[in-house]
Simulated assay, not measured.
Amino acid sequence: MRKPLIKQWLSHYGLFILLLISMLLIWQWIVHLGLVPPYILPSPSSIGRALLEDSQLLLGKHLLATLKEVAVGFLLSITFGIALAAGMHAFRILEKALYPFVVISQTIPLIALSPIFIMWFGYTIWSKVAVVFLTSFFPIVVNTYDGLRKSDHEYNELLLTMGATRWGVFRKIQIPIALPAFFSGLKLSIVYCVVGATIGEWLGGSEGLGYYSRRMSSNLNADSMFASVFLLSLIGILLFAAIVLLEKKILKKRGRKNDH
């Protein structure tokens, strides 16, 4: 008999919730006693008040701008990441020519590239999307490519000799085997998207939660700055959870098909 959903959730995350509440209470107590100045580390209650007071601005213009950058960058990362991984898997010459460039792209500091993107695209959404894309496409490419390589080469050759087409082997065998690795890449990528959007907005933006955080930091408004950081963290957690749910749903559906 399956446990109720709430009991399952508490059995998985009960200790985390208890630890989180304890940390917040200790944090509130430390700031309340004056052990840490509130302009350096505001209390959780102060951050909550700032979040409520600035909710119209934070949850309107700035949140939507950040989500738009994350969504566009993530979709581009998925499109080009899958295409590049499949191309390198299918054609050895592409793997030899392009894989080193994929690795090199991650060795360049994003802080150094952001001004270049601003120079190319101006203070538009595309300068931020470029940062998001460069941050997030690497896990998708590498994990998808590694997942496709996991299929048994001898088994694939056997299917080809029995009359299966390369596309059929790719669709029926290699893609299902690569799905767990692909979703691992997606989970990393979606979190990196939020990081990339924040960096892009921090260095050259006029809207978004990263821009708002920078503006509040320069005004020494710690409460509002921490409120925007909290929202950025919450976005990352929710998007990560959405990918996890999608992964479970698709892999479970795949499992039922294989049973039949």
Results as ranks from 00 to 15, higher is better:
G73R: 05
I26N: 14
Q56G: 05
Y99K: 04
P100Q: 07
E69T: 01
T79G: 07
F91C: 08
A71C: 05
R149F: 05
P115N: 06
S136Q: 05
Y145G: 05
G34C: 13
S46V: 03
M88V: 07
K96L: 01
I82Y: 09
V142Y: 04
I6G: 06
L76R: 02
A86T: 12
L59F: 04
L64W: 00
E95H: 10
Q28H: 15
A85E: 05
E69M: 03
L5E: 07
G122R: 10
A86Q: 12
L51N: 01
S45F: 14
L5S: 08
F16I: 03
F133R: 04
K7R: 09
F80V: 11
S55F: 08
K68T: 00
L64T: 04
I140W: 07
F121Q: 06
V132D: 02
L63V: 00
W27Y: 07
I40C: 11
S151L: 09
R149D: 07
H89D: 15
R92H: 12
L18I: 08
V70T: 00
H89T: 13
V31I: 15
P109S: 10
V131K: 02
K68C: 01
S46D: 10
L64E: 00
G87C: 10
T135E: 00
I40W: 11
V72F: 00
A85H: 06
T135V: 06
T107C: 09
G48Y: 10
L113D: 04
L59C: 05
L67Y: 02
I104A: 08
L19F: 06
A65M: 01
L94C: 14
P139W: 10
F138L: 12
V132K: 00
T66G: 00
S11I: 01
G122M: 02
I82L: 04
I6R: 14
A65W: 00
L10V: 12
